[in-house]
Design a protein around this nucleic acid. Structure first.
Length: 263
DNA sequence: CGGTCCTCCTGATGGC
DNA sequence: TGCCATCAGGAGGACC
């Protein structure tokens, strides 16, 4: 799944579900293995994991010995636990005890990589800090003259923010979505960063359950738990939500409640 | 540098 | 019912 909160939930799920070496392994769609050989993947997945780690939307698993396994979910990837080796859109399946774990990804934008230590370090070097570790002064510099949306979705500036988090947080702070980073003071940058920390904490608090086998949002027939994203009416003023497109991505916002920084 | 468009892929949804 | 357009949580690259 997509943003920091859902990836953190996937990390916690793997941690509670993948407690032993896999006994059976199926690489159902070899295309999802972006780097490394199928044999490398099978060898690692058949070991007992030592640590489950995450930065932003990047998840990886470390083992006592050998390379690491990295997961990136992009738009529609997620980790699912079932009792069957058959699962719709499963690209990789492995059996742990009585459970089957699946890397499920209908659109196949997501991928898995086998990482050496130096490959891991190189991948992480391209990512900015998680929101809780972000420095407002540095953030403001790295945002440059761009619109906030472009800067915040740039994973090298801050890691983990996606389209939904951007939309929800801008509404919470009353900021117009077309505002530029340079229009915000350092104090306002601090509030912005804290709002992302709060938003992602709430997602994990609301949606993580060790027993729950999957998460379904908006586009998969599930519910929409968000206040502005793909909504019609503003919860604050009851006015209509509007939609605009920035960099090819939809932005939903309330033109009455989000006037701050309006151009 | 910044903005826009396209691409990867497969589905759900709504209009006609 | 069928057909077509549009949109979808991400991100990299081409191009102006």
């Amino acid at each position: 799944m997509p943003e920091l909160g859902e990836v953190e939930i996937a990390r916690k799920h793997l941690q509670s579900w993948w407690t032993d070496a896999a006994s059976t392994f199926h690489l159902i769609d070899a295309k999802v293995l972006k780097s490394g050989e199928p044999a490398d993947l099978e060898r690692q997945i058949s070991q007992t994991p030592r640590a489950f780690k995450r930065r932003g939307k990047q998840l990886w698993v470390e083992f006592a010995d050998g390379p690491h396994l990295a997961f990136h979910f992009r738009m529609t990837g997620q980790i699912v636990r079932t009792t069957s080796p058959e699962e719709r859109f499963s690209r990789i399946a492995w059996q742990v005890g009585d459970s089957w774990l699946h890397f499920v990804d209908p659109r196949r934008f997501g991928y898995v990589e086998v990482w050496t230590d130096s490959e891991r370090d190189a991948a992480l070097a391209k990512l900015g800090p998680d929101p809780h570790a972000a420095d407002p002064k540095l953030m403001r510099e790295k945002a440059g003259a761009r619109q906030l949306k472009a800067a915040l979705l740039d994973q090298s500036v801050i890691a983990g923010v996606g389209n939904i988090a951007f939309i929800e947080v801008m509404w919470r702070l009353g900021l117009h979505p077309e505002i530029k980073g340079s229009q915000l003071s350092k104090a306002e940058w601090s509030r912005l960063i804290q709002a992302f920390v709060d938003f992602f904490d709430e997602v994990v608090e609301r949606d993580f359950s060790p027993e729950q086998g999957r998460i379904d949002y908006v586009n998969t027939g599930g519910t929409n738990p968000f206040e502005i994203y793909q909504q019609d009416q503003c919860p604050k003023c009851s006015g209509g939500i509007e939609r605009l497109v920035q960099g090819g991505r939809s932005t939903y916002f309330c033109p009455r409640c989000q006037r701050s920084g309006r151009r």
